[in-house]
Design a protein around this nucleic acid. Structure first.
Lengths: 198, 198
DNA sequence: AAGTGATTTAACCAGTTGGTTAACGCAAAG
DNA sequence: CTTTGCGTTAACCAACTGGTTAAATCACTT
């Protein structure tokens, strides 16, 4: 049985694909219409303009990109190490299912930094505070929280945004790079423990 | 005294700025002409087409982006740790002078992976081989060379491509982020020693 | 001064782009 | 059966885009 997909949703799906592949200025309304299997005028009927359509797609993708970790972070039964482990686990899984997401968000934000409004931002402060508390308590080694988080997030994201360059420089074929991505989770988690465990 | 700048060079400089700011599809030939202070027809007189002009700019920027480390890597007077230290030192300095370079290269390569031809690629193999040799000799700890290099390069590049997102999430103002970039070098070098020193 | 080749300009052009419009189809409501 | 309002379409449009052209200007040689 076929699930009915509304025209609106077909447009959003197509727009997502095209914007991620081509970026805002590279994307063409006609291309989105074709991919959605509809008339170009429908795009403007449902979403007034290219800008509006892009805003919606971007906000949706941004939500996906920002880790939803409030519940994990606030779970008192978990140590900081366990929390970070869970974060890396979930985040790397999500990225493997959306490998082009990071480049889409990062490159869009680079040309349009004010777009950040559409995102939930709170968890940054929480993590920093959490790290500082644990350092005070002496349960983890003393590190610079921002430098540490920059490295940690970079370790998750860079394999995806840097893939073409990295696999060219180190002459890694598709399968070899896939293997690296598979093993990345353990590697990052080992890094966390190695850096933080007293 | 004023140094004469050829029209050709003025165009290249302007094209570089515009392509880096806007990307290929976002860049406009008229904008490049305006920035170079010349007529649009001159662009086509000196460089046949937008594609040709972009290719030149990209190849030039790619050369800048790829670290030139042959001499350092092959200097037998330096230990691997010293070589990596020197690499990080030089590379982070270069990036601080060209903060938008990484995003330009990475996003272009993501949409156009075959452009890699224009780059010198050899140093990847050398570094991997070097790391494996040192592991054999027991002078550094046993690590997965590719995972290690992915982390190391990511540590250098991510602060630049991820800046807008990161500074928003952690609510870092310009000065705070600049400080982090300043301290990044030491942080990366400390990481290298911490991971590799037996 | 006239010729010559490279450089520069304004005007132009055809194709593309985001966006609009007016008519049409069609199901539900009256 | 007619009306009403949403969904859909083809045709259209003005602005913009990369690219061209023919004439003008400049620097230099003869």
């Amino acid at each position: 049985m076929e699930t009915e997909i509304s025209t609106e949703q077909k447009i959003l799906d197509a727009a997502e694909e095209v914007f991620i592949e081509e970026g805002f200025s590279g994307a063409r309304m006609q291309q989105i219409a074709d991919k959605a299997g509809i008339n170009k005028a429908m795009l403007h009927y449902y979403f007034r303009s290219k800008d509006k359509l892009f805003e919606l797609v971007f906000a949706y993708k941004m939500k996906q990109f920002m880790p939803r970790v409030e519940s994990v972070l606030q779970n008192p039964a978990l140590s900081l190490l366990d929390k970070l482990d869970a974060f890396v686990e979930a985040y790397l899984d999500m990225l493997r299912h959306n490998p082009r997401l990071p480049m889409f968000i990062l490159s869009t934000m680079n040309r349009n930094p004010e777009l950040m409004k559409s995102a939930n931002i709170q968890f940054g402060k929480w993590i920093i505070q959490l790290i500082e508390e644990e350092i005070e308590k002496g349960t983890i080694k003393r590190v610079n929280p921002h430098q540490f988080m920059l490295t940690l997030i970079g370790m998750c994201i860079f394999p995806f945004v840097g893939r073409p360059v990295f696999s060219a420089v180190f002459e890694l074929k598709k399968e070899a790079y896939e293997l690296i991505l598979t093993e990345r989770k353990e590697h990052v988690q080992a890094y966390i423990r190695f850096i933080l465990e007293p």
